[in-house]
Nucleic acid binder design. Structure first.
Lengths: 156, 156
DNA sequence: CGGCTGACTTAGGAAAACAAAAGCCAGCTA
DNA sequence: TAGCTGGCTTTTGTTTTCCTAAGTCAGCCG
């Protein structure tokens, strides 16, 4: 096969999956809100305070996350309280957890001394890591990942 | 064990690994430059054109990536040409590939019809995916990931 | 030795993101 | 029915990020 990477200019990244994903979660605040959602945070002011952003920013980003289908906004009611809205991860939002896990793992290695949160396998208690693996079940080190043209490749 | 997530306000995310990582790669352009680097792009104007940013932005981001140790800038010389500088991923930069792979995989599922690039295992040709797995070797589905306090946890 | 090309830097300005402060509204609670 | 609280929205102003356009500089090439 011809090495399509060597002709990088012959194909465009107009519909690159990474770029499209970054259209949705390409800003810091959005990813930190998802981090909080993964911690179980549900209420508006908890999101704003824990992420450390102002209310207008939290409101705008949460609204966008709901519009993009990553969070579900739904009413709930604690006994003796009025109805409130909570934000919870959808399946689409939960599928971003590997991104958060990968960011966390890099930060644990290169950006902090001691991690403040660990991921463990609920069943066996062992530490959880992000791994690349192939459909045949092999662990794939980074230098054994080959990039190949996919069906959606566009000429540039 | 007490559920530390239930007391989310009792600990801070001041040294959160995710936040620290986003300090480095928390913007779209930076991640797209790393994508290009993973495609093998090395030259300044190729980065700028392929990522679709202006030269000043490319220069600033590449400089920051070099300062942060994700890219190495080094002189090279093609025969008959003058000396130029190229940017190549360092080990620290390569360790962000799981982040890119996770972003790509989410985009393949939710944001594009057909992926334009596939990842394959060089040895066996099978498709490569990002997976969560525990130290005991189990595949860990997202709902079996448990969050536990780590040694670097700070009171808020 | 003067032009060209690659790799930037500088200057100027528009757009987006963000913060602080204040206002609004619904629905308990007194 | 008059607060009070949670969940926002509005306003105003600053900072950051990005753009275009133009300028700089080094060194090979004729």
């Amino acid at each position: 096969m011809t090495d399509f990477l060597a002709q990088r200019d012959s194909w465009s990244t107009a519909n690159c999956s990474i770029a499209r994903t970054l259209d949705v979660v390409g800003n810091r605040t959005t990813l930190l809100l998802l981090r909080e959602a993964s911690f179980g945070t549900r209420r508006f002011d908890d999101f704003a305070r824990r992420v450390g952003v102002s209310e207008p920013v939290a409101a705008a980003r949460l609204k966008q996350l709901v519009a993009d289908g990553l969070l579900d906004r739904r009413p709930y009611r604690e006994p003796g309280q009025r109805t409130r809205d909570e934000y919870v991860l959808t399946a689409k939002g939960r599928d971003l957890l590997p991104v958060l896990a990968a960011l966390r793992e890099w930060g644990d290695t290169y950006a902090v001394e001691e991690p403040s949160v660990r991921l463990a396998h609920h069943d066996c208690g062992a530490a959880v890591h992000v791994a690349l693996r192939c459909a045949a079940g092999h662990d794939v080190p980074a230098d054994q990942v080959e990039l190949l043209p996919g069906p959606g490749l566009l000429p540039s």
